[in-house]
Design a protein around this nucleic acid. Structure first.
Length: 478
RNA sequence: GCACGGAUGGCAGAGUAGCUAUGCAAGGGAUUGCAGAUCCCUGGACCUGGGUGCAAAUCCCGGUCCGUGCUCCA
């Protein structure tokens, strides 16, 4: 089965073929770093992390570019409020972004382009648009004139000029500013007092919201590239504005081959967003859940579906992720990872997994396969037999749960986890074995009160007892 | 209002025509003194009204409800 991708522009799943053989350019709209990252950002980052991981797995040479919009009204607002430089605010939040995304096992993009480092390219692009007659200079900035390319309206959202012209639900902003038409959008905003600015042929100012992505994708990926991504909420106006700017500037249509949009995170049926104030930051979430469990829960639905966020969904993921880790650590202790091609069960799991991923990156289908493989591993571990099979499963897990889904931490972390567990275990081992022997004696005499008392004591040492057919075993709570 | 998308068991969530999704939760069983972990089994769903088909959760039309976008947003 070959890869199919749902393309927002054509509104259907299309078989994927790159523009250039073997190479893929992908640009994803990043964040405006005016506050710490919330779960919506995690969903976006993880969605495209999975997409690039899978494209690479398919053998493509992927160039993954994303950005920080590090100058913007909201950043300025926060900066003024705190009496700090706008870049200090941006950098602080970018630092937070990297920190949480690293712990979510998001592989870093090849480039994190920044608006403040792309000003010359942005100015070039605006100049071209003015020269070509697509943009005009208003009294407070430069604007793109929609009427110069009306056929490009509604490319992603299906809206027509007339619809928006006629009312937009009564929420049309007055032209007010230097705009000729309320649908025109700013390419360059003249600086007001006490605002950061850059020099330009049109006076001191800064870029409008949409132009930076057109300029940055052009700068890093060229005039045409394969995939442009971002959150669903960016379809309009942001991505449609990009289509206007890029296509008019470059003089070509369809400069992006596939448009990919990830779904939103909902809270009580409503989109999580900064403006509604119903957001949970990623680092907050880590107080109650392991980072990889959060990752798991975000992969538990296909990237385009909305995800309803609530505590029980996190609990369930935590359970699954813990089960995966316990089984994985158990296997790691016993044997090394190995090739799995001799095992029919694992081959068919791979096949279903890959079919799911090739069907527009359906991680939910992939996770079902993962669950069945983990179950198999638990089964083998509980009987402690078939080491060859276990090592084949470990190989499978490294590839699919690790490299593709990113649910297994780095080898170093796994090893340190194991040694940490071991050393802790050694620390308490003598004492535990001693108590355990006493408990066994009590149990032999059917002195259940005594036995349970000892068990309570062990529990208070964070030691969990599991009585089995071959006597009790114990482990440390993490 | 307009555009786009969605409606599946208690919950989460796959599935574009015919065959058990899956997981969590629930119930039963194995194991156990109890507990836990693990294993086995069970029940339970396709918003609504029409249509097409031998056959529809799946395709078509109408309705209802919900979400997103139309304003900053991942």
């Amino acid at each position: 089965m070959t890869l199919r991708i749902h393309d927002t522009r054509s509104k259907k799943k299309r078989f994927f073929t790159p523009i250039k053989d073997g190479k893929i350019g992908i640009y994803v709209c990043g964040i405006t770093p005016y506050s710490p990252s919330h779960l919506g950002h995690a969903r976006q980052a993880i969605s495209f992390d999975i997409i690039t991981r899978w494209l690479r797995k398919l053998g493509y040479d992927v160039n993954y570019i994303t950005n920080f919009t590090d100058i913007d009204d909201k950043i300025i607002k926060v900066a003024n409020k705190e009496g700090k430089d706008f870049l200090e605010i941006a950098n602080r939040n970018i630092k937070d972004y990297f920190q949480v995304m690293d712990s979510l096992n998001v592989i870093r993009a090849d480039e994190y382009s920044r608006v403040t480092e792309t000003i010359p390219e942005i100015i070039d692009m605006i100049s071209i648009l003015i020269d070509k007659g697509n943009a005009y200079i208003g009294n407070d900035g430069v604007y793109f004139e929609i009427d110069t390319a009306p056929e490009k309206y509604g490319q992603l959202t299906g809206q027509t000029l007339e619809m928006v012209r006629s009312g937009a639900g009564g929420r049309v902003e007055g032209t007010g500013s230097g705009k000729r038409d309320h649908r025109d959008f700013a390419l360059w905003k003249n600086a007001k007092e006490n605002e950061p600015f850059w020099e330009s042929p049109w006076g001191n100012g800064r870029p409008g919201w949409h132009i930076e992505c057109s300029a940055m994708s052009l700068k890093h990926l060229g005039k045409e590239f394969d995939i442009h991504g971002g959150g669903r909420d960016l379809m309009f106006p942001h991505h449609e504005a990009e289509i206007f700017q890029s296509e008019c500037c470059i003089g070509k249509e369809n400069t992006v081959k596939y448009w990919i949009h990830n779904g939103m995170i909902n809270v009580n049926g409503e989109k999580m967003s900064k403006s509604l104030g119903n957001f949970t930051t990623i680092s907050e979430t880590f107080d109650s859940v392991q980072p990889l469990a959060l990752r798991y829960s975000l992969l538990n639905a296909p990237y385009r579906q909305p995800i309803e966020f609530n505590p029980s969904m996190l609990e369930e993921s935590e359970k699954h992720q813990e089960r995966l880790m316990l089984a994985y650590l158990g296997g790691t202790k016993l044997t090394n990872a190995n090739d799995w091609s001799d095992y029919e069960f694992l081959n068919s799991a791979s096949e279903s997994f890959c079919n799911g991923m090739n069907d527009d990156f359906n991680t939910r289908v992939a996770i079902v396969e993962l669950q069945s493989v983990v179950k198999k591993l638990q089964e083998l571990l509980s009987t402690n037999s078939e080491l060859d099979y276990i090592s084949a499963i470990m190989g499978w897990l490294n590839e699919y749960a690790g490299n593709i889904l990113g649910l297994i931490p780095d080898k170093d972390i796994v090893n340190s986890l194991l040694t940490k567990l071991d050393s802790k275990r050694n620390e308490v081992s003598t004492r535990v074995e001693d108590l355990l022997a006493q408990r066994q004696e009590a149990r032999g005499q059917k002195d259940w009160d005594m036995a349970d008392k000892i068990r309570d004591e062990l529990n208070s040492m964070k030691v969990v007892i599991e009585d089995g057919p071959e006597g009790p075993t114990w482990k440390l709570e993490n």
